[in-house]
Each structure stands twice: as C-alpha cells, then as structure tokens.
Design a protein around this nucleic acid. Structure first.
Lengths: 333, 333
DNA sequence: TTGTATGCGTTATCAG
DNA sequence: CTGATAACGCATACAA
C-alpha cells in the first residue's frame, strides 16, 4: 500500500531513470521515438515501481478521455448483454474504455447520471433507449460530445442512432399470428416506452386485419419469470378466449409457458406463445420458444464505430441505422 | 451541437456573468459562501449555457475523482445484480459515481481493464472475486487506491474484503441433503474458481459423512438454462443413482428442473434439486426451487461503506467481513 | 464576500 | 533524439 504517501508521478519516474519527464512520456506513448537505451531505462523503472500514468492529467491536456460512456436502463437480465459485450469489445480494440452506468428506468436518476457522465468528458455517449427529457437532450447537445441512441428508432435523434422499429415488431407479430390462423390474440408486456410502442402497434394492426387484440396484461419491472406467470394468469382471467400471446421479453414468455403448463393449457395447441429477444432461455425452454430476434452484437458494434469515427473527427457513414429484426420460429407457436 | 467549437469553461461562464472564475467555482461547489446576487447571476449563465464543469480538471486539482470502479467477471445473468444495485445506490448517496467494467472471466482482459481503472485514479476499487494474479495484486497495492474484494473470502486479501465462504456453502448443502436422507448426491457446476471451491468442499464433506458424491458435471460459461439441462443429462447418464443435485446457480437449477420434468423424473420425489443465488426464478419456478441465499444487497452496501470510509481517510470498521449465507427451503427438496 | 496567484500531472510545441 | 516551457480547467491558499 502507498496510502498517505504523496502520489508517484512521471517526475519521480524521470528522476529515478535519470531522464526528463518528457522522455518518460514519450517512452510510454511513442516508444519508437525514443532511443533504445533511454527506453530500457524508463521501462525498468516503470516496471519496478508499477507506475501508471494519471489519466485525469493526460485527458485534461489532450482534451480526450479515451473513454466512452454507456447509459443503460438496467443491468438485470440478459436483454442488453449481447450489445454491451460487443460494444465493450469493439471499443477496447480501438483503445477506448467503456464506462457503464445504469439509470434504473428512473428519470431523476438518469438526469444525475447524465451530468456525472458529461462531467468526465467522455469521447462518446451511448444511450440505450432514446433520450426523451428535453433537459437531457439540451445537456447532451450543449456538451458537444458525440451521442448514439441505441435500441430504438425515433424521428428526432439527439445525434446518431442505431436501432430497430418497435412499432414494426408489434405489427409483424400480429401478421405472423394472423397468418397462422389466430383470431383472438393478447400481450403480456412491460410498461416502458419501447414496450408501449409495440403494444400500440399490435392493437392497430389487429384492428386493421379485423381480428381481436384483447387489452394487454402489464407487468411490473423487472421482467421476471414470475411476472410472466402472473401476467398470463391475469390475461386469461380477463380474456380466456385468446389463442396466442406475445410477451415483451423471453423471460416473460418463459414464465407464461410455465404458467400455461401448470394450467394444463397445451403450448402451442391451446395457446401459442411468442417472446422477444432470442435469449438463450428461449431456445432452451420446453417447448422451445418462438421469439423476435434482435442482433444486439451488431448494434453494439455499429454504435462503437459511430462514436469512434466521430471522436476521430470524421463524419459517421450513416447517422441513422435500422438493423431490423426477425421472427425465429420454434415449437411454441 | 457544439462540435468543433473550443470547449466552454468556467472562464467563459465567469466572463458572461461578469465575475471571476473563482466565484463561479464557489457558486457551484459552496453556494453558501457566495452572495445571493452573484449566485443568481452565475446560475443564470450556467442554466442558459448548460455548463458542466470538467471533472478531469477538478479531479486533478483535488486529487479525488469522486469515482469508484467495480470490476465484475460478467454482467450476464442476475447473479451480481442485487449487489451492483446496492453498491451504486450507496455510492450515489455519498456523492460518488460508479464505473463498471467487465473482465469476462479472462485474465489478460482483466489485466488491461485494471490498468485502465488505475489510470483514472478512482477513490476506490471493488473487485468481484479475489484478485489472484500476482501482477494484479502488485499493481493494486502500488496504486495506493483502497480495494475491496467481494463475494469471496480469502486468506490473503489485497486490502479489504466482504464476502462469504464458498467452502462452507458446499459443506452445508451436503449436510442439508444428508439430513434429508440422501446418500448419493451430485453437482452441476460452473467451472470458475469459486464454484470449484464449492465442488471440493462438497466432495470432502460427503466423504466425511460416509455418503457418495458422484463426479460433478461441469457446465460452460455462461450458466444458462440450457447448460443446466445438458449438465443434468450428463450427470444422470454417468450416475443415474443420484437422488439430489446441487447446481451452482439458480439458472442451472431451473434448467435441471426442466430436464428432469422432460424425463418424467419427479422433483423432489425422485430427484431433489437445489440452486444457488436465490434469484427470482428460484421462487417463481414450478416447483419453487430450494436455494442458497446470498445477501447481495448487504455485500454492496458494506463494500461501498468500506471504500468511502477509506477515501475519507478513516480506517474501515472491519477490514474483513463474512456476511454468511442461508439455505432457503422450497418445494424442490 | 470576492479576487489573484499558483499548481495538480501530463503532453504539445519548439529549441537544442 | 532529448529537454525546457507552457498550458489544459479547476480549486486551494492567501490577499484585498
């Protein structure tokens, strides 16, 4: 431990190596511009002392933090995990560090977190979900930091955008179920903005096709298996005639599937179930669950590229990218 | 957007408000020491311009980043979520920001991440799981940054520690199953260090009690439901005589329970299943799963307190805290 | 209560 | 290739 001692800096390394601080800086950042002897001396001292340069100082001087911040609604559940993993990997390859913050679906908290993030002057900010508060949008724009909103398509992005249309998903699922002969369908859904977009599109498309979409059962956050069970129970209590249910996540779908089984409601014969996310649980369930697949890895990679391109001063290839989605058919429908 | 424009600083705010930069700094940090008029003028400009102070500069000057870094093996799954949530909350209350990094159970990556973290000079570092590499331990100690290793008890902590004994869990589960009459038991387990500790203790205790612990089925990371199904299948293929299985996570246990059902193996009559973590899936499953409960919230809170106390220059109350565990009995055993 | 000078640790720039 | 100097944006110490 080094507690209490005054911090060890490049000056100290320089002193011990018998060179100037500038040479230490170069040895660390551009070793090819330092003579082999000097380099060896510096490296030896760095190794011995475990010296690590202070990123606050270098960030201040360079006006680059080599840091990208991601703001997630939640870490719970595997929903965003694939994307975060890809984001992290892509940023690391390019020499950036990822800093993750979770807002917990809470507006006040999101506001505070956003301030904290902007304070650190990251080279980019990735928002999972659109920034809706006008306050937040202003703060982001004023900061001059490149922003990518991910996981959602909106008409008025703060800056860049990579996502997919939740409305299109709602409609497509209705089409899919309609094509399979279902005429009375329902939803078990979370209550966040993106889920609501799907709920509305679901109802509208059903009406357009002339089939019945019963009122959805809303589940509280987080979307657990238990919430899925309770959601299906509520839906069936109200509308026992439904023959198919679209759940807003695979975890809810798994819960619904278990609840159906407990009620001796054969899946898919008596009740078809479709989830969303294509998490591993969907494929592993019994029966395997039909689901809406989102390519989280692709979103993460593209978001990283967008942010890095901007941080390097280039304009991004495209400021808005729709990566679409697909329905993965399995035994539950 | 403000791209390209030179960054807006306190000096600019000061100029616009017609005061000195120092007054702006005080208005932001110690408003009670600024006259109401000045305060109003500064706040007005800050509001209008959306000014946010640069944390790299203030951190450099104060030699405090007001940042705590947490290093997790993974974000996947709900295992650490309760702890992270509590950690985040406790730190926020005390004016610190939490920065999360995931090492992905990969040593090289962990090394790089650790460097990146130390560079930013956080006021504390929380490690989930013990730091095993000697390199990493040295780097941590040399940094002088307070460190808390969490989720595990080890004989030689780098600094502070809050966790529970994985060996004690392995032994307790054997005792529990033994008391219920089981004489041939097995495990479906992940292969990480902590899981292995439980595996070994499980085998030892079984031997001490004179009952049979068959060789465990190891599952690949991440611990999904599918891995649990496959794990149980493998175990039963090798050792069909087992009457109870301890799974190293609730997700694995859920998978095992589904696999058992598919094989018409009644739970718990023919096969008892016990999970670990007490995630919501455990209670929501059918049948509800017996599990080992860890108080992640408590770990998170204590870790935050330890780190903050040290950052404030105090010695922590206790440098090592064992928070224990409990077995939650449900219908699967 | 407000302002001025100074330095935090690093690197861009320019001189040798 | 190496070193001296200054500056990044902010807050501590001190002066007015």
């Amino acid at each position: 431990m080094n507690t209490g001692a005054k911090p060890f800096t490049m000056h100290d390394v320089a002193r011990l190596a018998g060179v100037s601080p500038m040479t230490v800086s170069r040895a660390l950042n551009t070793p090819e511009r330092v003579s082999p002897e000097m380099l060896a001396r510096v490296r030896e001292v760095v190794r011995r002392t475990n010296f690590v340069p202070n990123a606050m100082a270098s960030g201040l001087r360079r006006a680059r933090a080599r840091l990208v911040a991601a703001l997630l609604p939640t870490l719970v559940g595997p929903v965003f995990q694939e994307m975060v993993e890809a984001l992290d990997r892509a940023l690391h390859e390019r020499g950036y560090q990822l800093m993750i913050g979770q807002s917990g679906y809470d507006a006040t908290r999101e506001e505070a977190l956003l301030r904290g993030i902007i304070q650190r002057r990251p080279d980019g900010i990735i928002l999972v979900g659109a920034m809706r508060s006008e306050e937040g949008r202003r703060a982001l724009r004023a900061s001059g930091i490149p922003v990518v909103e991910a996981w959602e398509l909106t008409a008025t992005p703060v800056d860049m955008l990579v996502g997919f249309s939740h409305a299109a998903i709602g409609a497509s699922v209705v089409d899919y179920l309609h094509a399979r002969g279902h005429r009375c369908i329902g939803m078990v859904s979370a209550g966040d903005q993106r889920a609501l977009t799907r709920v509305n599109a679901f109802a509208e498309r059903a009406q357009a096709l002339g089939i019945t979409a019963v009122a959805p059962a809303f589940t509280p956050a987080p979307s657990t298996m238990g919430a899925g069970r309770a959601g299906l129970a509520e839906l069936l209590a109200r509308s026992p005639q439904v023959t198919a249910v679209f759940c807003s996540s695979d975890m809810l779908a798994l819960g619904a599937s278990i609840e159906a089984r407990e009620r001796r409601l054969a899946v898919p014969k008596k009740l078809a179930i479709i989830g969303m996310g294509d998490q591993s649980v969907a494929a592993d369930a019994a029966p395997p669950l039909t689901t809406v697949r989102i390519d989280g890895t692709r979103i993460g990679r593209i978001a990283a590229e967008m942010v890095v391109a901007r941080a390097d001063g280039q304009a991004p290839g495209q400021a808005v990218v729709d990566i679409g989605f697909s329905i993965v058919e399995r035994a539950s429908t």
